Computed example of a mutant assay.
Amino acid sequence: MEMKKRISLELRNRSPAEVAELVVDNCRSSDGEVEGLTDEFKELEFLSMVNVGLTSLAKLPSLPKLRKLELSDNNISGALETLSDKCPNLSYLNLSGNKIKELSSVEALQNLKSLRSLDLFNCEITTLEDYRESVFELLPQVTYLDGFDQEDNEAPDSEADDEAR
Score class of each variant (00 low, 15 high):
S84M: 02
R132P: 02
D157S: 07
P64V: 05
S72I: 07
L93I: 05
L95E: 04
F136L: 05
D162Q: 09
K101A: 09
T82L: 04
S56I: 02
C87N: 00
V106K: 11
L109R: 00
L47W: 09
S29F: 02
L60S: 01
L63D: 02
Q150G: 03
D119N: 12
L112H: 06
F148P: 00
P16V: 04
L95F: 06
S77A: 15
L9G: 09
E151N: 08
R28E: 00
S62P: 09
K113T: 09
M49L: 14
L80H: 03
G53A: 03
L63E: 06
D146A: 01
D146R: 01
G36K: 03
Y144G: 01
L145W: 05
T82M: 07
K99S: 13
N122H: 11
F148C: 00
E151Q: 08
L11C: 05
E33T: 15
T127G: 13
T38C: 13
D157C: 10
G147S: 06
N153V: 02
L37D: 09
A58F: 13
E154I: 10
N111A: 08
L120F: 02
L115P: 04
C87F: 05
D85N: 10
N111L: 09
E81I: 03
K65D: 07
D25N: 14
D161R: 09
Y131L: 06
D73H: 15
E10V: 07
L47R: 01
E2Y: 09
N75Y: 05
